[in-house]
């Protein structure tokens, strides 16, 4: 289910004095099963881009094709998009509303063709997948702790088993353990064959888990490549207005001190490995 964005532009507030060009001629392609990270300074259009892909906004120009079909074209079944694509917004807890956790998660299954047993099984499966304690599933989602709320909200999106998952700043407001747990969940979903698009400021997270990173700058796609390609040249990364992660910066510091052979390391495990290799017997 590849995603193709072709020459997409998007404006807000057309024909008013507040008109703003959010995106200009963006083109890229995400293959089936890829984990793509999206980075950029605040206001560069990241949220606009993912909302366009999710079909929640219409582009002024250009096309968005999922699995070869134009999602804004005539005759495209919007219901199909809802089934194949799931989007988790920033602070997704704000979408909770039902009387019990169970019901809130099952909300996405309402218009799906599943039997009652299948739905129950689905809810059970997804709550376990996000690490939610099942005995609390009868409580009101609004009375839960912040961490539990986040899990329930994400479960609510995963319940429909979408093949494409979009996460908008999913690490916002999470403590270090929560962050790790989420990234492991994302990695697991990726291993299961889903396509993941993740918007984040956290360079370490994206470098550690994404296959490719897209960089947006003031509405334009300024760079795309593997984490090593994007953060290989630190000065270039700066001109793109994105901050390098700690792993990369530590690698840089060690390289300058002569403890590493190459500075272009962005993954934590690889950094550890290289440090061990280059510093045997010290």
């Amino acid at each position: 289910m590849p995603i193709e964005v072709k020459e997409v532009s998007c404006r807000y507030g057309e024909r008013t004095p507040l008109e703003v060009q959010a995106l200009k001629e963006i083109s890229f392609r995400a293959e089936d099963g890829e984990f793509v990270g999206i980075m950029g300074h605040t206001g560069c259009g990241k949220s606009t881009l993912i909302q366009l892909i999710a079909g929640l906004l219409t582009p002024g120009e250009g096309q968005i094709l999922i699995d070869g079909k134009d999602i804004n074209g005539p005759g495209y079944d919007r219901e199909e998009l809802r089934r194949t694509l799931g989007i988790v917004f920033q602070y997704p807890e704000s979408q909770l509303f039902e009387t019990t956790v169970w019901r809130d998660v099952a909300f996405a299954l309402k218009h799906l063709d599943l039997s009652r047993e299948e739905k129950a099984e689905r809810v059970r499966w997804v709550l376990e997948a996000v690490g939610f304690r099942m005995e609390r599933a009868g409580k009101s989602p609004l009375s839960l702790s912040g961490g539990e709320k986040r899990r329930v909200a994400i479960a609510g999106v995963l319940a429909a088993r979408p093949r494409i998952l979009i996460f908008d700043e999913p690490l916002a407001g999470l403590d270090p353990w929560g962050r790790l747990e989420f990234l492991e969940l994302a990695a697991r979903l990726h291993r299961q064959g889903n396509t993941i698009l993740m918007v984040s400021h956290d360079a370490d997270a994206l470098c550690g888990y994404a296959d490719r990173i897209l960089v947006l700058d003031r509405g334009r796609l300024s760079a795309q490549g593997t984490p090593e390609e994007i953060f290989g040249d630190l000065e270039r990364a700066e001109t793109l207005h994105i901050g390098a992660g700690e792993v990369r910066r530590i690698a840089q510091a060690l390289y300058e001190k002569g403890r590493l052979q190459s500075p272009a390391i962005t993954k934590y495990k690889i950094l550890l490995g290289e440090i061990k290799k280059n510093n045997k017997g010290r």
């Binding site: 909302q51 999710a54 809802r82 799931g86 909300f107 799906l112 999106v157």
Partner: peptide, 16 residues
């Protein structure tokens, strides 16, 4: 703005 986000999130979940 919050209302817009909520509407979009629920629509994406399949709300009609």
């Amino acid at each position: 703005e919050e209302a817009e986000t909520i509407r979009k999130a629920q629509t994406a979940r399949g709300a009609r």
